[in-house]
Simulated scan of single mutants.
Amino acid sequence: MLELVVARLEAEIAELAHRIDGAAEFTRMMETKTLPSGGVRAYVLPTGIRGQRGDAVTGAFTQPITRTIAVVLLTRSVDAAGERALSRLGAFVDEIIATLAGWAPSDEVGVFELRQASIIPTEHGLLGYQIEFSINDQLRIFS
């Protein structure tokens, strides 16, 4: 599912084309403290799955679940490209919300809904912003 989210963001928001990474790259950046340069960098991360009451019948198990993802934006607030990104942060966040809210990447039961969006703590001249979405889905296990 995350690959489809990345593809949609890159297709719909030109500023994010070839500037989105996943959890491995995010972890590497945090461990090495290598700062993104040249404007905004985005990371699409799975942030959790919450299950509800399941139902088991002979040969099948189904359970409603809610998957949550985050789009984390990072930009250096001390370079020219970063300053340009900061100047339009509100509009940029609104573009991401409009691109994902109400959309489903495949056969999920629901569509993405906005959960929350806020500035997150960062260091070393970075500005971080996290936008969280959730989508209802269903586990289907057949034996």
Rank of each mutant, 00 (worst) to 15 (best):
E108A: 02
E25R: 03
K33P: 00
I141K: 13
A80C: 06
E83T: 15
A11K: 07
I13N: 03
I141W: 02
I141A: 08
A60V: 15
Q130S: 12
T62R: 11
I119G: 08
F133M: 07
T32E: 08
A14N: 13
L35G: 02
S106H: 09
V6E: 07
A81D: 15
A117C: 10
E123W: 01
E113F: 03
A98Q: 12
I20L: 13
G110I: 11
T62L: 11
V57K: 12
A11E: 15
R84E: 14
P36I: 05
E10I: 08
V71M: 05
A81C: 10
A98W: 03
L9H: 03
R76P: 15
T99Y: 08
Q116M: 09
Q116W: 12
T34W: 07
G125P: 07
T99L: 01
T58S: 14
P36D: 05
M29F: 04
R140M: 02
T68Y: 08
K33W: 01
R41M: 15
E12L: 13
R28G: 07
R84T: 12
V71G: 13
L89C: 12
L139M: 11
I69H: 01
F61A: 08
E108Q: 09
I141M: 00
T75M: 15
R88P: 01
I119Y: 09
R19E: 10
L45C: 07
M30D: 03
I20F: 03
I65S: 03
H124P: 04
D94W: 08
S106E: 13
L74A: 02
P64S: 03
D55G: 02
G128S: 08
R8P: 09
R28S: 13
A104L: 09
L114F: 07
Y129L: 06
Q63E: 14
G82E: 03
Q63R: 15
A91N: 11
A60P: 00
L86N: 13
I96M: 05
P121K: 03
E95M: 06
T34H: 02
G110L: 07
A17D: 14
T58R: 03
I135T: 05
N136R: 13
F133G: 09
L74N: 09
N136I: 12
I49S: 08
E15H: 00
T32G: 07
E3F: 00
E83P: 03
L139S: 04
F112W: 11
A98C: 09
T66C: 04
I131F: 06
S37E: 13
G48S: 05
E25K: 04
P105A: 05
G82P: 04
E132D: 04
G82H: 04
V93L: 02
V111A: 05
A104K: 11
N136D: 12
F92T: 11
I120W: 08
T34R: 05
R41I: 04
A81F: 11
P105H: 05
V57A: 15
S118K: 10
R28P: 01
S87H: 10
I65Y: 02
H124T: 06
S106P: 08
A117Q: 15
A85E: 10
Y43E: 07
I141T: 09
R84M: 14
R115A: 09
E83Y: 01
Q116C: 07
R53S: 13
A81H: 01
F92M: 12
A117N: 14
V93N: 10
T75Y: 06
D137T: 10
R19T: 12
A60N: 14
I96W: 01
